[in-house]
Amino acid sequence: MVLMTTNALVQVGLFATLLLAAVKPLGLFMAGIYEGRIPRPLRFLGPIERAVYRAAGIDQGAEMIWRRYATAILAFSTTSVLTVYGCQRLQGILPLNPEHFPAPTPDSAFNTAVSFATNTNWQGYGGESTMSYLTQMIALTVQNFASAAAGMAVLAALIRGFARRQSPTIGNFWVDLTRGTLYILLPLSLIMAVALVSQGVIQTVSPYREVVLLEPAVDVDGEPVTSRRIAVGPVASQVSIKQLGTNGGGFFNANSAHPLENPTPLSNLLQVVAILLIPAALCLSFGQMVGDRRQGWAILAAMSAVFAVMLALVLVSEKHGNPALTRLGVDQAAGGNMEGKEVRFGTATSALWAVATTAASCGSVNSMHASYTPLGGLATMWLMQLGEVIFGGVGSGLCGMLAFALVAVFLAGLMVGRTPEYLGKKVGAFEMKMAALVVLIPSGMVLVGTAVTVAVPQGRAGVFNPGPHGFSEVLYAFSSASNNNGSAFAGLKADTPFYNGLLGLAMLVGRFGVLIPVLAIAGSLAAKKHVPAGAGTLPTHTPLFIVLLVAVVVVVGALSFFPALALGPIVEHLQLTS
């Protein structure tokens, strides 16, 4: 059997070419925005930026110490959660609800509010059967922008921590939030939305359409069915930012497997590139802002190396097919494991998307991950469990990777008996403690959440597949929530008070358990003086450092999750192949 078809190679090649071509210009552009250099074509937005500051009483010249920066993001996130919660619970009496959807239950509203405010976009509801247009646009889509811009703001603050010398401050959260939204996310989303509309992604606020079937059918009760109600809505605007902001929450329940959300091969390619576009480009922004672009390329190379290995694993696993189906006589020689995948996309395009969406903390899907082969499912799960640092969420992913870089230079320092340094800053005990929190908090939340869920009846009640696959569903859910991904192994009944509450807590802990220590690192590093590189300094732009960084990420991820993975996808793989 040929495991890598020409189609797969062309798809991956197109994807990689487009992404790499965009990384440098976009990275330098974003660096300029966070350094206050607004490009001439976007300066017409300046009056809007200044109007926002005036209306909100923000002094854009006022710099913040890290604790104030953290307090600002906490205040902003609290307001975001409460607003999204309120919008959902009041949607029954608010306008733009042509289908007259009632309010979701309080626990579901809590879960969704937390989910969108933390850039997770875990969806315990079916969008087209639950949310009004107003809720989709004012609550959910707005949070797609705001939560993404907040993550990017924290990254900008961390980079300033590396770049500044003996500075007590790391920037202004409100300015970073506004500029990230106004100059980066909004223009990119507008371009993307127009491109998607050109491909047939719908954008309307008209009521759902009743269409007459060309070929009448019969329902399960034997009654004739002559018409069908088609859900429509403002889809393109949500899809563009759901990919660019690594949010992932679809307008429709089927997400980007839905033909009105992802209708053509070109819309599919644009969307999968958009998932990794900003996280990859931010590596170059980092290099530019710290004054050494090689540092950004090195981080990007480390991310890409892990990505490529995991992509190869999923491509080969899915192309190889499902052994259980082979035993039933299903011919998988041509298509591979097609269960849960769109025929129009096939295994290669689906696998590429699955790896991209779990490497980045996007979570949008064009195929159903629960139906992947156990090894394919393991790869998607593990990419999240690595802490969403292989590209990861916009801003938050690179923050996590830079925490791993601190751990890597610390280990290298221990090996050669020198004080560790990174980018001219001595890494002390405080930075190491904070980096340890960044690495350990999401991992701990995944394992504790999974353990609690499989130990209590309310948790086990949601598992429909007994055995290792059921365990994988729970492990995937907490890996996704705690690392703010949002995708799911379908089959788990998660819209219950127990799951809504515990997964909501996992999202909050995973988000702020990382962002607050990252800001502490930023503040601590910014206050330090610059140390010139000496003979004992480990260069951090070389292949040696890239290998060391990859090794640290992979070893930490393997040690943390191998026992749990052994209970789920690994034992399922052994069962299927034995």
């Binding site: 604790r67 409460l82 919660y85």
Partner: peptide, 30 residues
């Protein structure tokens, strides 16, 4: 029921703010 979830949100973020203060103290001690 709404009240309980809203209180949970406020308590979580209040706890985060407290954690931020504790980390700031840890930083000054180090």
């Amino acid at each position: 029921m709404d009240f309980a979830w809203l209180v949970a949100v406020v308590v979580f973020f209040g706890g985060c703010d407290l954690a931020t203060r504790l980390l700031a103290n840890l930083q000054s001690e180090d």
